[in-house]
């Protein structure tokens, strides 16, 4: 290919994140953001939650969810800032903010999931 751009790679992450976020986040945000705090449902206690999250498969799923969703956000938000506010001249700053944020969050997720007792 004459022009090797990294857009396909970023778009793949964006799409993967779109799928992961669509399948997983609505139910999780509903439970932890609304149902549990408002007492509609009884949340699982510390031991059970830890037991669930400690499972290697859960760790993998949660890591992928964080990683892909953050890159999904980075990609979409970058274009929203370009188009919605017409601030294309701030490109380097926007890219740094979006992808830098996504990389930071992904590293944090990896660290937290790795060091879980």
């Amino acid at each position: 290919m004459a022009n090797r751009s990294n857009e396909p790679f970023l778009w793949a992450l964006f799409s993967g994140g779109g799928v992961a976020a669509a399948f997983l986040i609505p139910v999780l945000l509903f439970l932890y953001g609304l149902a549990f705090p408002l007492g509609w449902l009884q949340p699982p206690d510390y031991e059970r939650t830890l037991g669930l999250v400690q499972h290697p498969l859960t760790r993998l799923v949660l890591f992928l969810l964080c990683f892909l969703s953050l890159f999904h956000w980075a990609h979409r938000f970058r274009f929203t800032l370009y188009d919605g506010l017409q601030i294309k001249h701030l490109n380097p700053a926007i890219n740094l903010f979006c992808y830098g944020g996504a990389v930071t969050g992904t590293l944090a997720a990896a660290y937290l999931l790795w060091t879980l007792p």
Partner: peptide
């Protein structure tokens, strides 16, 4: 065609 359209101003500009 892919060489033209795989650039940023090609398909990747579309949101």
């Amino acid at each position: 065609r892919m060489d033209v359209l795989s650039q940023h101003e090609g398909i990747w500009g579309c949101t």
